[in-house]
Design a protein around this nucleic acid. Sequence first.
DNA 1: GAGTTTGAAACT
DNA 2: CAGTTTCAAACTC
Length: 808
Amino acid sequence: MDVVSPELNSLLPDEIMDTEAIEDVPHSQPDAATVESEPSDDTSVPMETDTPVASENLSLCSDAAATEPAQVLTTSVAPDSTLSISQIPVSISSSSSPLLTLKPALATSTATTKTTDSVTGTVSTSGLQKLTAPFTISPANHQIILNKVASSQATEAAKSAGTPPQIIKQEGQKLLVTAIGKSGQPIVLQLPHTGSKPGISQASGDTKAQAPQFKVVTIGGRSELKPVVGSASNQVTTLQAQQLKAVQITKKTPASSAAPIKFIITKTVNSKGLSPQTSVPPVIAGRVLTQNSPVMPPRTITLSEPHNTTIQSIPGKKIAISPLKSPSKVTVVSVASPTSNTSQKSVALPVNVALGQQILTVQQSTSASPVKVATNQTAAQNIKPVQSVAVGGVGGSQFKTIIPLATQPNVQQIQVPGSRFHYVRLVTATTASSTGQPSGPSTSSIQTAKPMVVSAGAVRMSVPIVPAQTMKQVAPKPLTSAAQVVTTTQTQQRLIMPATPLPQIQPNFTNLPPGTVLAPAPGGGNVGYAVVPAQYVTQLQQSPFVTLASSSGFPAPAGIQTQARLPLNGLSTAETTSRPRKPCNCTKSQCLKLYCDCFANGEFCNNCNCNNCFNNLEHETERLKAIKTCLDRNPEAFKPKIGKGKEGESDRRHSKGCNCKRSGCLKNYCECYEAKIMCSSICKCIGCKNFEESPERKTLMHLADAAEVRVQQQTAAKTKLSSQISDLLMRTTPVISSGGGRLPYTFVTKEVLEATCECLLEQAKKAEQTHQPQAEAERMILEEFGHCLMRIISSAGKAKADCASINC
DNA sequence: GAGTTTGAAACT
DNA sequence: CAGTTTCAAACTC
């Protein structure tokens, strides 16, 4: 699971995740491929980082793409497919502070893709306004052309915000994607002139038309930073108060011929004009990193990989995303360097990434931007193969996301049960969000929460991420540390239910499951809502944290942090997490009714035994309808049934009360009993025995306690026995080689046995020859046997001593 | 594991 | 709101 911490989000410039004008965001973007050119004064739309992901995208999972996922970002593209924007969710956000944002799921087929295929789509560039630009991906020449439609509107927002207008010349900006695939030809992402015609995918040849500024996108692990970067920086020098942001997707260099991919996007961005005091010390995972001075010397982010070490000396902001090649891990490293307005600085991030890990590195040089480093890793998650088909049309492929985050971004981890992907969604939300966890200390200054207007379609990024089985996080360390373990602290946990373009459906937000967060539908442009059940984050967090270790023996993190968990149904987060929910077995309800515990708890089905399950992101529409239906029927439907009583936590009681008739409320049929609470006056049960003084209940409790004690004892006994057995094996097994702990019986070899028998026979013969009585003969034989045993034992002891001496 | 029981949810 | 049906979990064998 790949998650970008809120701190990381905060690091990212506002232009990416600006959510101020969410309300004004029109929800009309049915066709992502359609290029939109909005008026320059339209500042309503924050960055659109998420391209619409229609369900049709499932078809995109071509064999070629699945087997050899394109490494550009996260979306696999069929070799011969022409993709719409929804299919190639690459978003470039350029606004008042032109931040180049790559949609998490940009994909190009690699080995098997046809070289002649090109993919067209739109790239939305937005700061305070949403701008979309068509782009063309041409695998043949490995060029991605981004046509920026409107670039100057962003300045309006900056002006309104009191920030200096953006001077960036976005015309002709190019994104150079270098070293993609085998050919090594750069992919050029071009932001054409403002006047250029939007909406039409341009041929790759157009990329050379203008290039006042370059955005360098390097794909391929082996690729080196192109000179273009230098030119880009040079270009930046002419732009005052601009910051250079680079998005780098680094792919671990495979030993095979598979094309290593690095994706480096460098873009000049205006400094937001934030006051210096707003700068936040470097933070990793919500922790404040040591910051020497407000003005730090230029630093370099270094991402060390087993075979490829990329040193980013490019000043500015950089986002490095590891290639998709890595099967199961995604690492997100966000680095931001606190800098003054006048200087562009980069932060060295000596983070070594273990083999197979993917790294997303975000470096910011914005003076106002807090410096943060966050790293997340995720491993593949076990998911039903059947359900693994294509969320977002990329079944079998892996998603990655570069998550550009606004000043008040919220990263939402979305676990898609039944899907191989994890989603990360960025939604804006108010700081008053009940479910939001307090951000790290360093991020407080940037917690300029803006009221989230759900209906407006908050900025969101939905990124199916590498199949994550375990989410790994490492503890933050100062940037100066040679060996760094960075931990992403999930400061805000939000849950997003599968969103669907159903603007007409607006569930009762106040009654959504705890921790629920609404967000725009993933593919619906600005329509629909993404409602994430509270469990979602918890499910993600249940995954063990993994150390981000370098290939060069990067030390494991000594301290592993666990993320805060959302309370569920009145139970503490620890309870909910320590006791995984049982998988449901729904057969007819499609897991879209409250019969289904998963659905009722606001969870996606995960590892369940249900049939025809719709409780997943693949059926967002149905699920959202079902949620609405349930809320219409009972606004309290998703509220915890077991709430705290007025007197306090000890007085937990069922919100509705049970209605038992036969169970006496002493079986798990009774919801009160199941919740281990007494029935109350609001219960309508008959023959209730679930009250404090009930002898039956006491008996049951005693029995239950006794049973529990027995279970514990048995468990302890088993553990002890197992330990003893293993200990015994440990003692005896290695002895053979060393002889140190060899037991005497091991010396009773065949030869020894034969010799012993001969001795005994000899003794028997001797007794017979001397005509000893039988009793005496037996005595003699037994005596001889004793002697033999003594010799064996003596020999064993001697051998042991000898061996010990030899070892010494 | 199959069948039964149970009560909440859904439906009328 | 009450009665009935549906449903999935709990339970029993």
